[in-house]
Amino acid sequence: MTEFLQQLVNGLAQGGIYALIALGYTMIYGVLRFINFAHGDIFMLGAFAGFYLAPATLKLFGAGPSYAGAALVLLGAMALCALIGIVIERLCYRPLRDRPRITALITAIGVSLLLENGGQLLFGADPKSFPDLIVDRALDLPAGWGPLSALTITLSQVLVLGVTLLLLVALRHVVNRTRTGLAMRALSLNPTAAQLAGVNLDQVIMFTFGLGSALAGAAGVLISIQQPSIDPLMGISAGLKAFIAAVLGGIGNLPGAVLGGVLIGLLEALVVGYLSPTYRDPIVFAVLILILIFRPAGLLGTVQKEKV
């Protein structure tokens, strides 16, 4: 029982990270109808932004790890990634907006390769050790919690999960309660009608890239707090898993991306815990194939119909 719960805890933490990345895939798909294959690399850039920002930022609050420093590193990485996402959209995707989708898709693969190889050139190909932003420790769980008492839960796991939840709530607010969020949803449903209502498509698409990239950047820092070895190719696998999560939940559907992320995270943890780490990736990819065959719209996605 304890073993099972432990896997769930581990899976949830990983799933939250996938959810943050998957949201970017799905939001960008919503407004542009294409998969931004470079999105996983933004996640990697988030980790490196954190890596380079950390020493100076932590120094502001004394020498060692601190919550304020960690928060500032996180925000800094998010801002940098938002900026990078916006620049990529402006330079690489906007000029191709009226071309066939496949053109943008191939360009995205090109951008992804550029970021991965550029990262190796700039940061070096060897893994780097992410600095400690907080002092991590295992939490003492009360003895009265039955099987829960024996779980190993670390402070960083709790913090990462908490921050992830906070980001999800903030995103939900932006998308459902703000004027720009409404415009984003309208644009993803019908760009022509959105324009006729006065929406500047360029602006909203830019905003969407910024928002999605900031979330991926946050995920990059959050994962590095838990697994402090980072390298320029770390975005490939995480990006792919998050993409599968977005498809599983229903591409274009925001709650679906979160659900998909959590499910993929849990599935991975259970496979690693009960079968073998070797089976982790094959099983996740098998899930992708199965959804595409049996439920291409995803768990929460609906096939869109318009009445005529």
Binding site: A186, L189, N190, A194, L196, A197, V199, E306
Partner: peptide, 15 residues
Amino acid sequence: MIFSNLTVEENLAMG
């Protein structure tokens, strides 16, 4: 060209 997944209220807000 109604925004099919938005409520009537949100459609009007978009206007």
